[in-house]
């Protein structure tokens, strides 16, 4: 389980996260929802120790992040994290070099699924294909938790569909996923839990299934209630 407890984060005098708390379980897809600038990416970075927090605590399976944690949890940011001059296959061998949990077979499978050429240079890829390669760099790691920052942002509809398909496959099953989005419609049917965030605070955290069954509401309905009052 990933536990985010009372996390505060300031940029200068601006409080970006104001005592934010939520949990994400293994085997579930948790979606952080909120408009741009509410602190979704900051939370992801804070979980990965890519930005310091002012107070609060973040635990991964009960432990603070350390070097071993990066074999357990990975982050797929909205920008590709490999050098542009690298070929896709170079990027894969870089991953294989450093991560014990890199699964080359799975990387190969995904490459075929996305119909990508391993000899293609990253710099020459379209935005959609770059997002797919970025996705593979995360998915081919045998980690327990995946953090994805706006995986659907700014890419074409067919790439979106392909990426969404991955969510329903065995590649995601049993893992804990935290995903951020400001457009819920793409993934509403995929997520298990929703965390509505505004202004650095959690407004509501709920199980999508439960709300759907008990109250007959979709995520968008709940969002309407919460954000519009």
């Amino acid at each position: 389980m990933i536990e985010v407890k009372n996390v505060e984060k300031k940029y200068g005098r601006k409080r970006v996260l104001k005592g934010l708390s939520f949990t994400a379980e293994k085997g579930e897809i948790t979606c952080l929802i909120g408009i741009n600038g509410v602190g979704k990416t900051t939370i992801m970075k804070a979980i990965m120790a890519l930005t310091p927090i002012n107070s609060g605590e973040i635990l991964i399976d009960g432990k603070k992040i350390r070097k071993e944690s990066f074999e357990k949890v990975t982050f797929i940011p909205d920008t590709i994290t490999m050098l542009p001059q690298m070929k896709i296959c170079d990027a894969f061998s870089f991953m294989a070099d450093f991560y014990k949990n890199w699964d080359p077979q799975r990387a190969e499978e995904l490459l075929q699924f996305f119909k990508l050429d391993p000899t293609e240079r990253i710099a020459n890829l379209s935005k959609g294909n770059m997002a797919k390669v970025n996705m593979i760099l995360g998915l081919a790691l045998n980690v327990d938790y995946l953090l994805m920052d706006e995986p659907f942002s700014g890419i074409d509809i067919f790439s979106r569909e392909q990426i969404a398909e991955v969510f329903t496959s065995h590649l995601i099953e049993d893992r804990g996923v935290i995903i951020t989005t400001h457009e819920i419609s793409d993934i509403e049917h995929l997520i298990d839990r929703a965390v509505l965030i505004d202004n650095g605070e959690v407004l509501k955290e709920f199980s999508v299934e439960e709300v759907r069954e008990k109250e007959g509401k979709s995520v968008v309905d709940v969002m309407r209630e919460v954000y519009r009052g």
């Binding site: 590709i80 994290t81 050098l83």
Partner: peptide
């Protein structure tokens, strides 16, 4: 800097930073 922020990858390597 640049489009591909490689520092993400470097800092997420399972090794002492």
């Amino acid at each position: 800097f640049g489009k591909n922020t490689f520092i993400y990858r470097l800092l997420m390597l399972p090794t002492e930073r």
